[in-house]
Design a protein around this nucleic acid. Structure first.
Length: 580
RNA sequence: CGGGAUGUGGCUCAGUCCGGUAGAGCACUGCGUUCGGGACGCAGGGGUCGGAGGUUCAAAUCCUCUCAUCCCGACCA
């Protein structure tokens, strides 16, 4: 493509609307433009990168036995009412009515639609397994869209769904997808981890997230320093520390006593006042859920994971209780609450039972209790894992130290089970003529987010350095002297032979100063840059520079075999994986 | 949903406190000179100052309302 004819509106300055690097660079390189909050237009260059991800996704999905289709973006309310999600799905589901006052929504995901489609067509076990996917624009009315394509409201997503005859076959489908996802992200040139994840509101029994490691990521991931355990912070477990010396031993710890702690409303204030460490205290938080009020007791240095709490209690929702609600059952306000002699149910984190001589609120404003021992002074009706993992915790698999890193979730696979097939009656007849529910799985990839994540991992001060497989153009050919007929003629010929070889080339034939061409080439970041100037041409050399390299090499203008070799080498990464 | 900030030409921003009829740089058009890392000169075009209402002789500037965008937070006892 000739630069002079292509619509690539590059920006010299960072737009104020952009915060993270991928967002800034995509705007500056003329890949995307914002239309409304969280809604973006894909310009030619941006679309080319998107298409590259899509191409890899299609190739690997098809290779894994999945078939592409395209489902509607607008979906009828009835279907969502049938699955129960019309009410369950929050405000992220954009609902509206048509002229006949019938309810519709913009599809944020397609479990209902695909299940509806399949239930009408699949009657026999002979027609299974089935794995269908689509690449489509979805809409989720996010509370707070941000970071450009990273967290938009309208976004391009690949979503796939598998249907199997039983649990075992469904797991097989899941593993096939797991492997396909690994190949996809590898081919995209990303540094990623497959992490165990909470299956969340979508339902199901187990799931993995594919997370690209980047500091700007919104997700926390706990990873083991020794083994390959990796899990989303929402779900990550830890090996519980051995009980402290004297922990729970009522013969060693002195009797519990009340101490005055004036104006101490937080763990920090209590610790500063008593000159102790937060991990010697517990915090007692009152949560409200669909089974009423529950006091949750965790080590003072830790944070409750509401996701885990929800799982432990086996409830649909939890939230911190309103202050007014607490006043009904407690004589003290928050900040002075504790688990000793309370009227409501108490749930404790596993770690609490092993703590010795802890400090907690006395349920009396301005007072705390010390020398409190679990089992002696208070008990919990349930003990389990309800806190978020922190860096330094022990790996649940091997006991080594774990670290917590940030990442961008680019893919998520779930084993759904029969949640949707049951709700929508998607059944088939097995070998014995018996009616059974299809066992489902679902598999998503954020296409735009994958492009953004690739930029987050590959850039420098000058601009993007997208991996070869994702880069819109593989080669930038810079003709520095557009007035010199010989130079132009040579560049035209070189451009023609690049095209003949099928190498996507951005031919900068603009009548611009060299500085502008270099800056734009670096910003767009094609893996290879060819420069032809008057002086070099006179010397009979062509300048070749890899975007990631610091120096350029010179090759004779009439011997371009070296050039083909360099390009083949750059292309080898993707091809190496795709030919596996 | 709560808090903070910002809306002035296509982009980045000044001017707002202290009211006097709109500016800079970049970009764009023409001409000339330049031409290997975002050139220079000259001459131009382009703005209902987010919107509505109000105060005033006079409003980008003061007041009220509203819309949009960005950031932080969304209960951690």
């Amino acid at each position: 493509m000739r630069f002079s004819r292509m619509y690539i509106p590059t920006l010299k300055e960072d737009p104020t609307e952009a915060e993270v690097i991928s967002h800034k660079l995509m705007l500056r390189a003329g890949m995307i433009r914002r239309l409304a909050a969280g809604i973006y237009a894909y310009l030619p260059l941006g679309l080319m990168a998107v298409r590259n991800v899509e191409r890899i996704v299609r190739e690997e999905m098809n290779r894994a036995g999945a078939q592409e289709l395209l489902l509607p973006g607008v979906q009828p309310a009835e279907l969502w009412q049938e699955s129960g999600r019309w009410e369950q799905y929050g405000k992220e589901l954009l609902r509206f009515t048509d002229r006949h006052q019938r309810g519709f929504c913009l599809g944020p995901t397609h479990e209902e639609v695909i299940t509806d489609l399949v239930r009408h067509e699949i009657r026999s076990y002979r027609q299974l397994p089935l794995n269908l996917y689509q690449i489509q624009t979805k809409f989720r009315d996010e509370i707070r869209p941000r970071f450009g394509l990273m967290r938009g409201r309208e976004f391009i997503m690949k979503d796939g769904y598998s249907f199997d005859v039983d649990d075992q076959m469904a797991e097989k489908s899941y593993h096939v997808m797991f492997a396909a996802y690994g190949r996809i992200f590898k081919r995209c040139g990303l540094d990623f981890r497959a992490v165990e994840a909470d299956s969340g509101a979508i339902g199901g029994s187990f799931s993995h997230e594919f997370v690209v490691l980047a500091n700007s990521g919104e997700d926390g991931v706990a990873t083991c320093s020794k083994c390959d355990y990796a899990a989303n912070l929402e779900k990550a477990e830890r090996a519980c520390p051995a009980p402290e010396v004297g922990g729970g031993d009522q013969n060693i710890v002195p009797a519990m006593e009340e101490i005055s702690t004036p104006d101490c409303g937080t763990i920090e204030e209590v610790c500063a006042f008593l000159k102790i460490e937060p991990r010697k205290t517990v915090k007692s938080m009152v949560y409200e859920s669909d089974r009423g009020l529950t006091m949750v007791v965790v080590n003072g240095a830790r944070q409750v994971s509401e996701t885990k709490l929800k799982a432990l209690l086996g409830v649909q929702w939890v939230e911190l209780a309103e202050e007014s609600r607490i006043e009904e059952d407690f004589a003290a306000r928050i900040g002075s609450l504790g688990p000793v002699t309370v009227k409501i149910e108490v749930v404790a984190d596993q770690e609490v039972a092993g703590m010795s001589s802890l400090v907690c609120g006395a349920n009396r404003d301005g007072f705390h209790l010390q020398h409190v021992v679990y089992g002696r002074d208070f008990t919990a009706s349930q003990v389990g894992d309800v806190v978020e993992v922190q860096a330094g915790d022990a790996c649940p698999r091997c006991g080594a130290v774990m670290e917590v890193v940030r990442g961008i979730e680019v893919g998520h696979i779930f084993k759904l089970g029969v949640k949707y097939s049951e709700a929508l009656s998607a059944t088939f007849l097995d070998q014995h003529g018996k009616e059974k529910l299809m066992v489902m799985g679902c598999y998503g990839i954020g296409i735009g987010r994958t492009v953004a994540a690739a930029i987050e991992q590959n850039y420098d001060e000058q601009g993007m350095m997208l991996p070869y497989a994702l880069s819109p153009f593989k080669v930038a050919l810079l003709c520095l002297d557009t007035k010199n007929e010989e130079v132009v003629a040579y560049c035209d010929r070189l451009y023609a032979s690049l095209q003949e070889r099928g190498i996507e080339t951005l031919y900068d034939d603009r009548n611009e100063r060299p500085g502008i061409k270099f800056k734009d080439a670096d910003l767009i970041g094609t893996p290879l840059r060819l420069t032809v100037g008057r002086k070099g041409f006179a010397r009979g050399i062509l300048e070749v520079k890899e975007r990631r390299a610091s120096d350029s090499v010179e090759i004779p203008i009439d011997d371009v075999n070296q050039l083909w070799e360099m390009i083949d080498k750059l292309a080898a990464h993707d091809q190496g994986i795709s030919s596996l």
